[in-house]
Design a protein around this nucleic acid. Structure first.
Length: 572
DNA sequence: GCCGTTTTCGGCCCGACTGTTTTCAGTCG
């Protein structure tokens, strides 16, 4: 069973936590955290890299030592140093650090003074009033710990982007009403359009902060004010979302945007470039000595480190700085580049609208074409169509096409890939389709090898065109099924097949890393909404967000093509 | 523990807020 990058990264993070509690060299601690971030975000798995004989020290923040540790982890699943550290420092202490306000120093103090090793120990100590006796803790600290350990429910879940938008919208409207506000923007991973966000980072320009902070903390959805100052405040909303608000002067707006948009890794890399040129870069600007030499716009910040503007979606320190330096930043795809949608359902299977309604809605979005892709017969839960029903449905599509002026409906189907890798319709039916969208909908628990082989076998069918939602994951709900994505993409390239980036906000499948890998391997992508209603068609923008994070350009995406050229691609 | 277009040694991003302090450490982002 291959070790996931995520498992390796989690182990490094845990090791970093425990070492930090042991008061180890902070830079060594940081090295483990940096390595964890590199491994977690890397598009290919460490085990695949090792299998291909790639030297891991070529990865950023991985040196000789960590390369060896990764190799051991891949081979044995173990990290001996972590086990050694856990012998002397109770592993659950890293859990305690997840309580807001408890960092390594205070966790260590509680462990040494009161022998607190677990969350239960902490709860008991807080309730019996022992904590305020420890040096550095007072009554307030004890009270807060008591409250927070009570409410603590593990890792704070990340919110899907679409849900974050719903939370952000009324808050932004409310904030606009404050006196003296000029600009308002949401920075952070929200602006980088990450598929999920941990909190909202809101940035405001204004001369005075104090009244704005009062206005902010008085928002009716605020449940708890965590901290409140003149330039920065943090609250928790009733939804559970944390919101950080920062107020900066207008001259610092660009520097602040850059700083609070992140990612952290990108910022650090940019600041290092600044240091090389003798500049200090912070949220207030670019400084040469005490003199601010840039910072009113983001562009001015990049200017000073000799780079062109880098779009937020690329700011993950995944090679964008090098690409910018060489003038090789991608010309990222935009919503306007999209000419059609290649995955949609109607009432005929499990959609909510009629053919006509879907066609009109798609035409209204300015599309040239919309593919109708009802489920195939094996997917009974989604009212999959049998051969007869499908062909009858196609007749309706043809009839409707005769009436439609500004859009063409394509005859397709979301064809199930059965367990043995065969497709859910015989070839004499498949040949009636303009193209196929093929997908795994059952038997998610096959081994990685079997699942991969199943998909490769399906691609061997000459009528296979697009692999839909390639991992099957549902964000925060269902893990992806196990596959070797690289093998699948290589096979797709060989067989002239395509891979879908499913734009449903809960799917966003391919991931951004998957897009990067597909682009490197030369596999073209279909960004499609898998719409089950007319309003779902507008989810295309989430697919575009994800595609931009995945470095995709219009030329990498097949539904940026006019219809004639598109249809040619489906002739294998 | 990583890294190098001044360095293979000696650096490593930096500012705001809180609570417990009497001048600042710890935490957070």
């Amino acid at each position: 069973m291959a070790v996931h990058n995520r498992e390796i990264a989690d182990k490094f993070d845990r090791l970093a936590d425990l070492l930090e509690i042991e008061d180890a060299n902070p830079f060594r601690v940081r090295a483990y955290r940096n390595a964890a971030r590199t491994v977690r975000g890397y598009p290919r798995s460490m085990s695949d890299l090792l299998e291909d004989g790639i030297d891991l020290t070529e990865l950023p923040d991985i040196g000789d030592d960590l390369a060896k540790k990764i190799q051991t982890l891949v081979e044995t699943g173990r990290l001996p140093l972590l086990e050694e550290v856990e012998e002397r420092t109770p592993p659950a202490l890293s859990e305690l650090m997840k309580i807001e306000g408890l960092g390594p120093k205070r966790v260590r103090a509680l462990f040494l003074e009161l022998n607190i090793k677990t969350l239960d120990d902490l709860k008991e100590a807080a309730e019996s009033g022992k904590i305020h006796e420890v040096a550095g803790f007072g009554d307030k600290s004890e009270e807060k710990i008591k409250e927070r350990v009570e409410k603590f429910s593990g890792e704070a879940p990340r919110t899907m982007l679409i849900d974050a938008e719903e939370i952000a919208k009324p808050l932004l409207e409310y904030l606009q009403k404050a006196e003296g506000i000029k600009d308002v923007m949401i920075a952070g991973s929200y602006r980088r359009r990450k598929e999920t966000v941990g909190d909202l980072d809101i940035l405001i320009t204004a001369k005075q902060g104090a009244e704005i902070m009062d206005h902010f903390t008085n928002y009716e959805e605020v449940e708890e004010v965590v901290s409140k100052g003149k330039t920065r405040s943090t609250v928790h909303l009733r939804s559970g979302m944390q919101v950080d608000l920062r107020v900066v002067p207008q001259v610092s707006y660009g520097a602040a945007q850059h700083y609070f948009t992140g990612s952290k890794a990108h910022n650090i890399a940019v600041r290092k470039l600044g240091i090389k040129r003798g500049y200090k870069i912070n949220e207030y600007g670019v400084f040469e000595g005490d003199k601010r030499i840039a910072g009113e716009t983001e562009k001015s910040v990049y200017d000073k480190v000799g780079l062109p503007y880098i779009p937020p979606e690329l700011r993950e320190n995944r090679g964008e700085l090098e690409a910018a330096r060489k003038g090789k930043l991608p010309k990222l795809i935009t919503l306007e580049d999209i000419r059609g949608n290649l995955h949609a359902h109607t009432k005929a299977s499990d959609g909510h609208n009629t053919l006509k309604e879907m066609a009109e809605a798609a035409a209204k979005l300015g599309y040239e074409y919309l593919a109708i892709t009802e489920h195939s017969k094996s997917l009974a839960v989604a009212s999959g169509l049998d051969k007869k029903q499908l062909l009858a449905h196609f007749e309706q599509i043809e009839k409707l096409n005769e009436q439609l002026d500004d859009i063409v409906l394509l005859k397709s189907s979301e064809v199930d890939i059965l367990e043995d890798g065969s497709l859910d319709y015989p070839d004499d039916v498949l040949k009636e389709l303009d193209f196929t969208v093929c997908a795994v909908h059952q038997k998610f628990d096959l081994s990685r090898k079997k699942q991969t082989e199943r998909i490769l076998r399906a691609m061997d069918n000459p009528y296979f065109n697009i692999l839909a939602h390639p991992s099957g994951r549902l964000i925060n709900k269902r893990d992806p099924y196990e596959t070797d994505l690289e093998k699948i993409l290589e096979a797709a390239k060989e067989r002239d097949c395509f891979v879908e980036l499913n734009a449903q906000p809960q799917r966003l499948d391919l991931t951004d890393e998957g897009c990067i890998m597909a682009k490197e391997l030369g596999v073209k992508i279909s960004i499609a909404t898998d719409a089950h209603s007319t309003s779902n068609l507008e989810h295309m923008r989430f697919g575009i967000d994800q595609a931009r994070r995945g470095w995709l350009e219009a030329k990498d995406v097949i539904n940026c093509l006019p219809l004639k050229k598109l249809l040619k691609l489906f002739d294998r």
